[in-house]
């Protein structure tokens, strides 16, 4: 059964069209990534799913129920980490969780949830108004987890999180998915979506550009990053060593500079390989594959994704 279905959804604010005839389906139990740059209409889509705004045309259903007619029944079974929220400054983290537990008539233990999202050591008893952005994000993720929801809607969940927080977020998404929950995960960062999602929908300027599996996404667009390395004297042996590494797609050597197309995990291996070959690395930088490249890959205009533009 479909967890989420959008059927020809259009939303106009005055004469601005935020969404244009958007249709897609999220199957029950899958982790669905909703990818698009800021302003593409991701939050508007989520706001329609939560009945914060009403579509100008088209229909949206969750668990087979109309999102407007049965909004409350849907929200009984949904955990949400909205975008652009704020917490209640004067209430503690624990009070927030208790409020959600009361609201959902659930019997979760606030302490357990606080630990799960990494708010430990008395953080839960501090006023949420004094929390950092990352701590607020952890708290609201915790609020979304109350009552084991059938659907988790996470709008840009990594906002404000440090690398540890982002890892915790990915772990929670994986655990919830294993439990059987459907996860709808929006982001403007390719790497995050790629890391946790089964399928991905790509939204650009209010229109659905593509829905694809993550494998399909990987083959459609070269998702590798480009690692630029400056050395103090490059040798052919070193270049060969790098070329033979797993995850390295292509290597371009130019005097003492090296451009390596490599996936995220392989970057440190490249640097180690160079040093093991006796080459001193003086500087390096990486360039992530961009959403623009991805759009170009699906819409077929512009240059080929991942192609070198250096002369």
């Amino acid at each position: 059964m479909a967890a989420i279905e959008l059927d020809g959804v259009t939303k106009r604010f005055g004469d601005v069209t935020a969404l244009q005839n958007v249709s897609f389906t999220v199957e029950s139990g899958e982790v669905f990534g909703f990818l698009g740059p800021n302003g593409a209409g991701k939050s508007t889509t989520i706001n329609i799913l939560l009945d914060f705004v009403r579509p100008t045309a088209g229909r949206a259903r969750i668990f087979g129920m109309d999102v407007n007619e049965h909004s409350q029944a849907i929200r009984e079974r949904t955990g949400v980490l909205p975008e652009g929220y704020d917490v209640y400054d004067r209430l503690t983290g624990r009070k927030h969780l208790e409020f959600v537990i009361d609201s959902k008539d659930a019997d979760d233990d606030p302490e357990e949830i606080l630990q799960r999202v990494g708010l430990e050591g008395g953080d839960g008893d501090r006023r949420a108004g004094d929390y950092s952005k990352g701590m607020k994000q952890r708290l609201v993720l915790g609020m979304a987890l109350v009552d084991e929801p059938d659907l988790l809607v996470l709008d840009e969940p990594s906002t404000g999180l440090d690398p540890n927080g982002a890892r915790m977020m990915r772990e929670v998404v994986r655990e919830e998915s294993e439990r059987g929950a459907t996860v709808f995960f929006s982001s403007h960062i390719l790497g995050q979506v790629e890391a946790v999602c089964d399928r991905v929908g790509i939204l650009g300027e209010g229109e659905m550009i593509a829905v694809d599996s993550v494998e399909g996404l990987r083959s459609a667009a070269d998702l590798s990053a480009t690692l630029d390395v400056t050395t103090a004297g490059l040798t052919d042996d070193a270049v060969d060593a790098v070329r033979s590494l797993d995850g390295v797609a292509s290597v371009t050597a130019n005097d003492d500079h090296l451009s390596v197309a490599v996936d995220d995990a392989g970057k440190t291996a490249v640097l180690s390989a160079l040093e093991n070959s006796g080459v001193e690395v003086t500087d390096f930088s990486t360039e992530e594959a961009s959403l623009e490249d991805l759009f170009a890959a699906y819409t077929g205009d512009g240059h080929e994704p991942g192609a070198e533009v250096d002369a």
């Binding site: 939560l50 409350q72 029944a73 929200r75 929220y85 704020d86 609201s103 959902k104």
Partner: peptide, 8 residues
Amino acid sequence: KLLLSLPH
């Protein structure tokens, strides 16, 4: 948004 994300 937090309030209305809950079943209120």
